[in-house]
Simulated scan of single mutants.
Amino acid sequence: MKNHPIPSVTDPLQYRAIGLVRGIYKPQDDENFTRGALIDSKGNEIDSVVLGRVITLIRNHVPLEKPHLWVVYPRCRNNQNLHLQITGIWEPSTLNKKLSNKEEFNEASNLKVDSDDLLEGDDYFSIRGELVFTKPEEKELVIKIRQKPRNQQKKALPFKVNLKGELPINYLKHFISLDVRRIDYQLFVEDFKIIGPVSHQPLSYKNKKNLKNKN
C-alpha cells in the first residue's frame, strides 16, 4: 500500500534524489505541455519538465491554475541551476475521489489517506548518494547519484546534485543519506547520516586486458 509520495528505503545503499515542491505548473505553451516552470508561493519560477507517466493525469484531472504538491526529481543544470522533473502529484483527498475507477493512475486507488499534509512539509527532499565534493568553508557539497538502468540495452549515467551545507572532507567517497530543504533556487542540508564508505571495485583481469589492448 502506498501512503506516502516518497517510498521507504529498501536498501541501506539505495541511491535516490526525490522531493516535494508546492506550486503552480505553467507549461511553456499549448504545443509544448511537458516543458515549463513550477511557480512557488514566492513567485520563483523553477525550470521543470513533466515525465511521461503523469502527463495524462495532469491534462485530465489537475486544474493547473491552482497550486499542488508535486513529486519531483531534482537535477542541476550547468552544475548550478535547479531543474525539476515532475514525476507525480500528492493530493489523495482529491485524487481518491476522481480516479477511484480510472486506469490511468492506478496508484491513486491504493491510497488510504484522506489528508494531503505530510510530516516533512513542503520543499522536503531525500538525497542519498556518494559525497564527491565538499567545501565546508563555502558550505558547498556535491552528491553523486547512480541510477538503475530502465532496460538492459541502455546504460543509466550517474548525475550530480549540488547542495548547500557543511560536511567534513574526511567523508569524501562515503555514502550519505541527507534530509534537504529547498529555499528558492537552492537545496540546503538539514540533517545527514553517514552510511559508510563507497567501495569502487577495481577492473577485472579481463577488462584490464581489453583496456591494455586498446592502448
Rank of each mutant, 00 (worst) to 15 (best):
V9C: 08
F133R: 09
I195A: 06
D122K: 07
L13K: 08
Q85S: 14
F192Q: 02
V132M: 09
S199M: 12
E140L: 14
R16V: 04
V50Q: 00
R128K: 12
R182M: 05
Y171I: 06
V161F: 02
G196I: 07
D184A: 08
E190S: 11
L119Y: 11
F192V: 03
L131K: 02
L111M: 15
D30W: 02
W70Y: 08
Y205S: 10
K102N: 11
R182A: 02
E120V: 14
N79C: 06
K193I: 07
K193A: 11
L99K: 04
G196E: 09
V180D: 02
K97D: 12
S126G: 04
D191M: 03
G121Y: 08
V161T: 06
L157H: 12
V21D: 02
L119P: 05
L119Q: 13
I6T: 10
N78R: 14
C76H: 11
M1A: 15
K135F: 08
N44K: 01
K42T: 03
Q147C: 07
S100F: 09
G52E: 07
L131P: 03
L64S: 06
S93K: 14
R146L: 09
N215K: 13
Y15Q: 00
E65R: 10
V9Y: 10
I18G: 03
N3Q: 13
Y185N: 13
Y171H: 12
K112L: 14
D40R: 03
P5M: 09
P12H: 04
N81Q: 09
Q201F: 13
P197V: 04
P74C: 04
I18V: 15
L187W: 02
R59N: 08
I39D: 01
G88M: 02
S204F: 01
L178N: 05
K2D: 12
L13F: 15
K102P: 01
W70I: 06
K154N: 11
E120K: 08
H4R: 14
N32V: 13
P12I: 06
D123K: 01
G165I: 04
H4A: 15
F188Y: 15
P136A: 07
I18M: 14
R146P: 00
L211P: 00
Q14E: 15
F188R: 05
K155N: 12
I194A: 12
